[in-house]
Design a protein around this nucleic acid. Structure first.
Length: 881
DNA sequence: ATGCTCACG
DNA sequence: ACGTACGTGAGCATC
């Protein structure tokens, strides 16, 4: 017979811990502004515990009110506590609602604390045939621990639990559980304002209790103590000690009117939980409910009807349909196509695998520019279909792209998650249908796949008008239709084209670097007088800071920092440091670039990156698999990697063009700063010009060092400057850095005004925008937490600058692609690196290309300052510098 | 899965 | 007093 198990949870303390589990609670808010961090973490904790413990009975206890029986004999009990934040209080009613939806009873009792309720019930039932588990956010309840009562205390927020058994308490404190009360009597507890004995803390209390067993025992034998300050304190505070013990003692005989039978647990109340999660906007939790197969209890999705197609016919296709191409792998260059679905809300077609893609009527539909389609991730579809010789045309709407523009914070990749955000629920997540990790795969029944795909297509059709309306409301119609959607096509073409890589050159480098690394490695082992893993910051830290006793300059969360700036400072103190720096540099090039790139060269001899168009908060692109936006350039050793990037044909060249100072030009424009604008209009060296203005120098007086400092200040301005950041960058004191900043603002008052205005605007509206209305919401901008708030303020300053620059590049790319076609050029756009475009072209076209790229980039948009593009070319990307 | 380090703009 | 420059991706070690 299975034993009964009662789970008792201290609702207040766990909720409180849940609230502080995360610093950044401003990010956990519903659309209507309710904070949900404590609710969410409470939910997750509850889910974990219920799954782990599988209790037969459950109760969550709460404190009743402000005063308890303890206040009757001690007015100041729990006095002096900081006020509970409003963001926490507002969540408590919802936590109770959550508990009810979990099908769990909660209880509170006037004059008593949750501790007393738990203590009373625990003792009452543990006498019977009950195992009791107590969950709390603080250690007060550990005094209850015995062979039938296990006390678990949350740590790390609420994600982990520490088990307090009598054995554990013995080991940790050398005390029996009940002696915890005596310890509190002597040492007190500042959080509850329990006084204890003056100058007696946990350590002293434990020592005394080891000798005398309890507060009573101690005072009986007080004369045996040698005269000391401590003895005096004990004598003076005798009354306080007994009072404190009384305060700390949990009342295990509280008048509780609950029959344990009524606490029997019979499972979640799904009908309450689903709407509750929706109200709280807990998408993952909703998702989880679907996957746990709660058959019959959860609202099943509607079965929608669809037609399975093996032979496509022209009659199945019409203008304005939605299309979904299913791939299970993220890399759409290589992933299999598992199925295709299309249709309208009313009529849905599905087909298994990729057979349909070779059928003419299907191809003709996709290829027809006049038959528009609504899709999810147009670029992925474009690239994947191209492998079947299909040129996807007529994409009129991309749900993924639109949802990104509407809210860049929305990280959902899955259509179901996007749909949930817009209150469309008739769809499963991919994870719930295909699984995840090693178990990921197509469902056993084809009908499950078909149903899922049909739902997706229906969702696309349903979401499109909503999203389109939102784009209008946010003034993002043009951003979407004239910038992002056309760009997605251009990016797709670049990804399909790929860039040719000279694998042989990389192989040579691999050999050379291997030899070099071997040599440095040996030298390091010699100097360390032992072998260790140089790549391990932990092991390296032991060698440098323990064995060799070098001074610790910076620490990380987990140990000593061994980052470059730290090692640079230690260079003179031990020769090993220089070798480690060199090792690091070469090891990085070897593993990330030489070996990394060799791994991703495709059979066509090219590398095909993927640009992620819906990720960054600023509107920039990112590049993955591999990242071609961080190929080394600053140091010569790494820069050589670029020798491996070559044109696809003999007698062709790599051509590169980059915007000069685009971010500062954008700043000059949006801040409307006369001085900075003048410098650009007159074509001056902007950093030198800043140096002259800020330090009051003539152009001859600007040394390279002064220019360097001015450059750092300019960078700082773009990033939302702080004295600390600038001081770190320049290796000067904070005071000096602040002096620079002050002078800068004096000389460029319009920049200062811009910064103040944009931060003000962000605080009022909750978001900032680029020149083309790309939006970034800043939930932390009014946070009380200093770090979060100042970070959001810097972001408010930086995002319009970085984002508008990104917009300009995007416009230039669209225009460039168009012009290359119009001019019938063979030149091809291959890469984008934030302010740079890389092409390959026949030698004969270079002169024309040079003119064309300059013309397009410099006139991509019109600002109040000129845009400038510089270009170069050569046999490899290395030579195009 | 997470943290550290380091590559780029 | 607080502890940071803005935006990314990848490899490696460690848990």
């Amino acid at each position: 017979m299975s034993k009964n198990k009662l789970l008792l949870i201290d609702g207040n303390s766990v909720a409180f811990r849940a609230f502080y589990a995360i610093q950044n609670f401003e990010s956990f808010k519903t659309k209507s502004g309710l904070h949900t961090n404590a609710i969410l973490f409470f939910n997750n904790m509850l889910d974990n515990i219920m799954q782990k413990e599988e209790p037969s009975h459950v109760l969550i206890a709460f404190d009743a009110g402000k005063t308890t029986f303890r206040h009757a004999f001690f007015d100041d009990y729990k006095a002096g506590r900081a006020k509970t934040p409003g963001e926490f209080k507002e969540q408590m009613p919802y936590i109770r609602e959550l508990i009810e939806a979990f099908g769990i009873q909660h209880y509170e009792l006037a004059d008593y604390e949750a501790d007393d309720i738990i203590g009373t019930l625990a003792r009452r039932v543990s006498a019977d045939d009950f195992e009791v588990v107590v969950i709390s956010g603080d250690k007060d309840l550990t005094q209850l621990a015995d062979k039938n009562i296990r006390v678990e205390v949350t740590t790390k927020g609420v994600s982990e639990l520490t088990t307090y058994t009598p054995e554990f308490i013995k080991e940790k404190y050398g005390l029996e559980p009940l002696q915890i009360i005596d310890m509190k009597g002597l040492a007190g507890d500042s959080s509850d304002n329990i006084p204890g004995v003056t100058r007696v803390g946990e350590k002293t209390a434990i020592k005394l209790l080891a000798e005398y067993g309890s507060v009573e025992g101690l005072y009986e034998h007080l004369d045996e103590l040698k005269p000391s300050k401590m003895k005096e304190n004990l004598i003076n505070d005798k009354e306080q000690a007994f009072l404190s013990k009384k305060l700390a003692t949990i009342d295990v005989n509280a008048p509780i009117d609950v029959a344990v039978e009524s606490l029997a647990y019979s499972g979640k109340d799904i009908d309450k939980l689903v709407p509750f999660y929706r109200e709280m906007e807990f998408k993952q939790q909703l998702n989880k409910l679907d996957t746990t197969g709660l058959t019959g209890t959860s609202e099943p999705l509607t079965e929608i009807s669809y037609e399975v197609v093996t032979e496509a016919a022209t009659s199945m296709f019409s203008d304005g349909m939605s299309l979904y191409v299913e791939m299970l792998e993220p890399n759409y260059h290589t992933s299999d196509i598992s199925g295709v679905a299309w249709g309208t809300k009313e009529k849905l077609y599905v087909s298994f695998g990729d057979d349909i893609l070779s059928q003419d009527s299907f191809k003709e539909w996709l290829d027809d520019e006049n038959l528009t389609k609504i899709v999810y991730d147009a670029k992925a579809n474009q690239v994947a279909l191209k492998r079947y010789g299909i040129d996807l045309k007529g994409v009129a709407f991309d749900v993924l792209l639109a949802s990104y523009l509407i809210d860049t914070n929305d990280k959902s990749e899955d259509l179901a998650e996007v749909a949930f955000n817009y209150e469309y629920y008739d769809i499963d997540t991919d994870e719930s249908v295909y699984g995840k990790g090693v178990k990921k795969g197509l469902p056993a029944e084809d009908s499950v796949l078909f149903q899922h795909l049909a739902r997706k297509v229906k969702a696309l059709a349903s979401l499109q008008p909503k999203l389109d309306q939102l784009l209008v409301e946010k003034e993002q119609h043009e951003l979407f239709y004239d910038m992002e959607l056309p760009l997605s096509r251009v990016l797709g073409e670049m990804e399909i084209e790929g860039i040719t890589v000279n694998a042989q050159r990389l192989q040579e480098m691999k050999q050379e670097f291997a030899v070099q690394l071997k040599g440095i490695e040996e030298r390091i082992y010699e100097l360390a007088e032992e072998e260790f893993n140089i790549n391990s910051p932990k092991q390296l830290g032991v060698i440098l800071f323990e064995k060799m006793q070098l001074p610790v300059i910076k620490k990380t969360k987990t140990g000593y920092s061994t980052a470059v700036d730290v090692l640079e400072q230690l260079k003179d103190q031990a020769p090993i440091v220089e070798h480690i720096l060199e090792y690091r540099q070469i090891a990085k090039i070897q593993s990330t670039y030489v070996e990394g790139l060799l791994k991703v060269i495709q059979p066509d001899g090219k590398i095909h990156t993927r640009y992620v168009q819906t990720l960054t908060q600023t509107g920039r692109l990112s590049s993955v698999d591999p990242n071609l936006q961080n190929i080394p350039i600053r140091l010569e050793e790494g820069r050589k990697i670029r020798q491996a990037f070559v044109p696809r044909k003999k007698d062709w060249q790599i051509f590169s063009s980059d915007y000069s100072q685009i971010e500062l030009r954008v700043l000059a424009d949006i801040a409307n700063d006369q001085h900075m604008r003048e410098a650009f209009v007159e074509g001056q060296d902007i950093h030198a010009s800043t140096a002259m203005r800020v330090f009051g120098l003539s152009s001859e007086e600007v040394t390279s060092n002064i220019r360097r400092q001015a450059k750092a200040v300019n960078f700082g301005i773009v990033y939302g400057i702080s004295d600390y950041g600038l001081s770190q960058n320049l290796g000067i004191s904070r005071k000096e850095a602040q002096q620079f900043i002050d002078t800068y603002f004096e000389k460029y008052p319009d920049i200062k005004t811009y910064m103040e205005t944009i931060v003000r605007e962000a605080k009022d509206k909750g978001y900032v925008e680029t020149l083309w209305h790309r939006r970034r919401y800043l939930p932390d901008i009014n946070a009380r937490n200093f770090n979060l708030r100042t970070f959001a303020e810097r972001t408010a300053i930086n995002t319009p600058i970085q984002g508008s620059a990104a917009d300009i590049l995007k416009i230039a790319m669209i225009k460039m692609a168009k012009r290359l076609k119009e001019e019938n050029m063979e030149a091809t756009m291959l890469l984008q690196v934030h302010d740079e475009l890389v092409f390959e072209a026949p030698k004969e076209e270079i002169v024309k290309l040079e003119q064309l790229v300059r013309e397009v980039m410099e006139n991509a948009v019109e600002l109040s300052v000129p845009l400038k593009a510089d270009s170069s070319y050569g046999n490899t990307w290395y030579e195009a510098k």
